[in-house]
């Protein structure tokens, strides 16, 4: 299995842990990930809040590079994944947009690169059976709230990722490595990631409510697959504590970190030290399980 892997800018900074754990998990499962040379930023929310052509052209710059490679594009950041798919959709369904985009990138591009989320590759191409065979340490007894946020599932017409109101992809992965994926109502609530720096008041409110739901449902941790959700839910716990006195101490981990742990990869190689709220409860549980 060979894919063009688009890490996204945050892989080089805030989400280095996601990047490292993704590559480690891919390696363990025999998935080959090739970075397209010279990939560039997808423009994120700022792009599409500013201009429709800019919003489609920035992803297209990287998509056209993947087209040359003749591979499927694999993305892990939900935000990048969303922008790539939306751009492909705009370019392939609207000829005027396609013309402007091609003019902007200086090349022809038809919107045809198959863009896939890493979780989808794990479920569909690798398969749960193979993943199960790779498990060395079970996550037995670990209660995980899977959080999908917005960009992975919405808009469903374009994303076609999972059920938009009750997705289960991450839950399936948690279960296959022995963890307990809990039922909770915050799965697709928005954490306000895009407003993190501009309207901290709004973000503190939204993250407080999501963390509260997970805690109430008895979660030991929240599993995510988007760097913006991770940073937002992880970092804002300090602000919530300051403003409301509520101290969640809820570890926010990437699904790839959990998978890696269960495959027996060392926590250091999975970026566990980079988490703001330490995930010691998870590491203890895994150590305990493997001693049994």
């Amino acid at each position: 299995m060979r894919y063009a892997y688009y890490p996204g800018c945050s892989a080089e900074s805030t989400a280095r842990d996601m990047h490292e754990s993704t590559l480690a998990v891919a390696k363990a499962l025999g998935i080959e990930m090739v970075e397209p040379k010279g990939w560039t930023c997808c423009g994120a929310t700022a792009g599409h809040q500013t201009d429709r052509i800019l919003a489609a052209s920035l992803p297209a710059a990287s998509l056209v590079k993947v087209k040359d490679m003749g591979l499927d594009m694999v993305v892990n950041c939900a935000a990048c994944y969303n922008r790539m798919k939306m751009a492909n959709n705009e370019i392939s369904t609207d000829s005027e947009i396609r013309t402007s985009v091609c003019d902007a990138i200086g090349r022809d591009y038809d919107g045809s690169v198959n863009v896939r989320h890493f979780v989808e590759v794990l479920l569909k191409d690798v398969g749960l059976e193979t993943i199960k065979k790779a498990v060395k340490h079970s996550l037995k007894g670990l209660k995980v709230a899977c959080y999908y946020g917005c960009l992975l599932v919405r808009p469903p017409k374009v994303m076609k990722f999972d059920d938009p109101e009750n997705p289960t992809s991450l839950d399936k992965l948690v279960k296959v490595i022995g963890g307990e994926s809990i039922d909770w109502s915050g799965k697709v609530e928005c954490c306000g990631g895009g407003l993190s720096l501009t309207r901290t008041d709004v973000v503190v409110d939204l993250t407080d409510s999501i963390l509260g739901m997970a805690q109430k449902a008895g979660a030991d941790c929240i599993a995510v697959s988007c760097p913006m959700c991770q940073v937002n839910l992880d970092l804002r716990q300090q602000d919530i504590k300051k403003q409301t006195g509520r101290d969640y101490e809820m570890p926010i981990v990437y699904i790839t970190q959990l998978l890696g742990l269960s495959f027996g990869i060392s926590p250091d190689k999975l970026g566990f030290k980079k988490l703001m709220v330490p995930a010691s409860n998870i590491l203890e549980k895994v150590a305990q399980n493997s001693n049994e």
Partner: peptide, 25 residues
Amino acid sequence: KKGKISLIPSLHGDRKIVRRIFKKT
């Protein structure tokens, strides 16, 4: 300290194509 913010920008991206996109827009 945790490497969550990098102190130096990445210069591996294809800056030419990005500048062209902004110019055209």
